[in-house]
Design a protein around this nucleic acid. Structure first.
Length: 564
RNA sequence: GUCCCUAUAGUUUAAUGGAUAAAACACGGCCCUUCUAAGGCCGGGUUGUAGGUUCGAUUCCUACUGGGGACACCA
């Protein structure tokens, strides 16, 4: 909505070129929009209360603007009251536009969102699920803000973790051969199991550790034929399994990067870095001295001469810059790597100067389970699919007696919505204690609650299919309707803020707020029992609610359902 | 040991340095048996502690305490 712009125009017409920050008053009785006069008062050397009074008088005098009914000073605040009739017209018009809810904040800029990055030969756990959910939502929010977005996924298919898994496979070769004939899920389960074996052996058994280190080298150098064959085979098992999950949660990547594609170049970049005295030999390894910049030192090439994660990331950055020329790259990675990325970005400033100010670590917090029940498959990690299935079972139970079509599809969609919403309603960097029971709760702060509202509106609209043309001319909305209109009018601003702050939770909070406004309306304002102008207006109004809700959920990466 | 993050209702979370710190869950009471009740209305905070900056601090600064994380050959 452009209400704020109109007010700004009036202000500037009166010589007040001021960057005014508007806000919504604490309660509707105090007005529909307001701004505080503290800053303005400071600039003019006046008392904020008097400043507000003068401004209110001034704004009341220019009665040209249709939307503002009256302007009232309340303490240091100037509060605007909107004409409900004009507000209604504005909101209905706004929602009828094709590009409603979009903004141009990122127009002309390219953003790369790098997320998911599970490692092959390892489990896909609930942390990955949060990662993917966050990355996809961010991508949609940025695209909605005009950015040209590319979704990329950087997957670790070489490194010590692979060697640990391979070591486990070699010890269970018979089972490996049998698993070859089994399903994608069985294969993933097998890899998870043998990885746990290798991982534990590496910690506890010195001999095993030596063997794993050797294996790691063999995988990097592709020096052993038999190992190469098993590696290639099982790598594909993992990727097939990941692809299945991506499909399930509705994500498509434009580009899959692999560590195996960048490690050679990574080593070259490190050696060049040594020549240019950016990196340094130390105790047989090559390090970047982060300590010089108030950070910490990190190893880029180990004493075997193999590139670490750090070295690979240098080459990855170079490749990404070359392929996409992004203005900004988001690495959606958990919070334990905050300090790692600070060191990496500092090293990149010297090794790849054009990456400066373009690399961004989007931090997300841990996910743990509240109900305590852990995945039985590995005994250690909670698998992403296990969580989705568990939630889906609960949803199925809830809709068991409902008279709806395609229960299986509905349950799957609602389950994905429940999980995604739980991840996104908290700010990204916060830890989440995932409660399965709360996530499937149909009341309050949950995905299913929002989907339900959309389904309910669709149900009403289906009953009015025969009414073709419902134009509203002179209807004056009631207070509850006006509150809903006000809430709807905030949507595009919220979508913009989410893009500016890279923060999907803004959308989630807004949608919950909108849902509450709608339920208030739903409880007090019947639609189908009315007729004439009221009926037409309310049909239009709930259509806008449906549209905004659907679009908002889309920005979170959540699909709606027809009925539930 | 050094550095980084964090602390808000019983719980999960909100709040560009500004209005009476806001919602949801849970709990108790009332309404409504419908356009899908998966609702509506009513009921509670020394914002971890102690200072400081400010007209004004949940927000900024300092110290302390609790929790989490990083710190050389993992990713």
């Amino acid at each position: 909505m452009k209400l704020e712009e109109k007010i700004l125009q009036i202000l500037s017409a009166n010589g007040l070129n001021f960057n005014v920050q508007f806000s919504t008053p604490p309660n509707p009785q105090m007005g529909d929009l307001s701004f505080a006069c503290f800053e303005l008062a400071k600039a003019q050397g006046k008392n904020p209360v008097e400043c507000a009074k003068e401004l209110a008088v001034l704004l009341n005098l220019c009665g040209e603007n249709k939307i503002v009914e009256k302007v009232v000073a309340l303490g240091p605040y100037v509060n605007f009251y909107f004409d409900a009739k004009v507000l209604a017209k504005e909101v209905l018009f706004f929602a009828s536009k094709k590009d409603f809810g979009e903004n141009k904040f990122g127009k002309g800029k390219k953003a790369m969102v790098e997320f998911a990055h599970p490692n092959t030969h390892k489990a896909f756990h609930i942390g990955h699920l949060r990662n993917i959910t966050t990355g996809e939502s961010l991508s949609r929010i940025l695209a909605n803000a005009g950015y040209k977005v590319s979704r990329v996924n950087y997957q670790g298919d070489v490194g010590l973790h692979i060697a640990k898994c391979m070591w486990g496979i070699l010890r269970s070769e018979k089972e490996y051969l049998e698993t070859k004939k089994k399903s994608i899920d069985d294969r993933a389960e097998f890899l998870g199991k043998v990885y746990a074996v290798g991982g534990q052996a590496y910690e506890k058994d010195e001999q095993a550790k030596k063997e794993i280190v050797l294996l790691n080298e063999q995988i990097y150098n592709q020096s052993d034929k038999k190992i190469n064959v098993i590696y290639k085979d099982t790598r594909k098992w993992s990727l097939d399994y990941f692809a299945k999950i991506y499909k399930r949660v509705g994500v498509n990547f434009d580009r899959l990067y692999f560590e195996s594609q960048v490690f050679k170049r990574g080593r070259e970049l490190v050696l060049e870095g040594v020549k240019n005295e950016i990196l340094k030999q130390s105790q047989g390894a090559v390090i970047f001295e982060g300590e010089k910049y108030g950070l910490h030192n990190r190893v880029f090439l180990n004493s075997q001469g193999l590139p670490t994660y750090e070295a690979k990331d240098l080459a990855l950055a170079e490749l990404q810059m070359k392929e996409y020329k992004p203005d900004i790259i988001f690495h959606v990675v958990a919070k334990e790597q905050i300090e790692y990325f600070r060191v990496l970005f500092k090293a990149l400033e010297y090794i790849l100067p054009k990456s400066q100010n373009k690399e961004k670590h989007l931090v997300y917090g841990w996910v743990t389970l509240k109900e305590g029940k852990m995945s039985s498959r590995t005994g250690q990690v909670v698998l992403g699919e296990w969580l989705l299935d568990e939630v889906k079972d609960k949803i199925k139970e809830i809709v068991r007696d409902h008279d709806i079509k395609n229960k299986e599809i509905v349950a799957e969609k609602v389950a994905v919505a429940a999980v995604k919403y739980t991840f996104l309603h908290t700010s990204t960097s916060n830890d989440i204690v995932f409660s399965i029971n709360e996530s499937v709760s149909l009341t309050g702060d949950s995905g299913p609650y929002l989907l339900y509202i959309v389904a309910r509106i669709k149900s009403i609209l289906k009953k009015t299919i025969r009414i073709k043309n419902y134009k509203v001319k002179e209807y004056i909305p009631e207070l509850i309707e006006k509150n809903l209109l006000n809430k709807l009018s905030e949507f595009d601003e919220i979508a913009k803020i989410a893009a500016i702050e890279f923060d999907p939770s803004q959308i989630a909070h807004y949608l919950l707020d909108l849902a509450q406004n709608f339920n208030n309306f739903y409880a007090h304002c019947p639609v189908l029992k009315t007729e004439g102008e009221i009926l037409f207006f309310r049909l239009n109004l709930i259509k806008v609610v449906e549209k905004v809700m659907t679009k908002g959920l889309y920005l979170l990466g959540i699909d709606t359902v027809e009925e539930m």
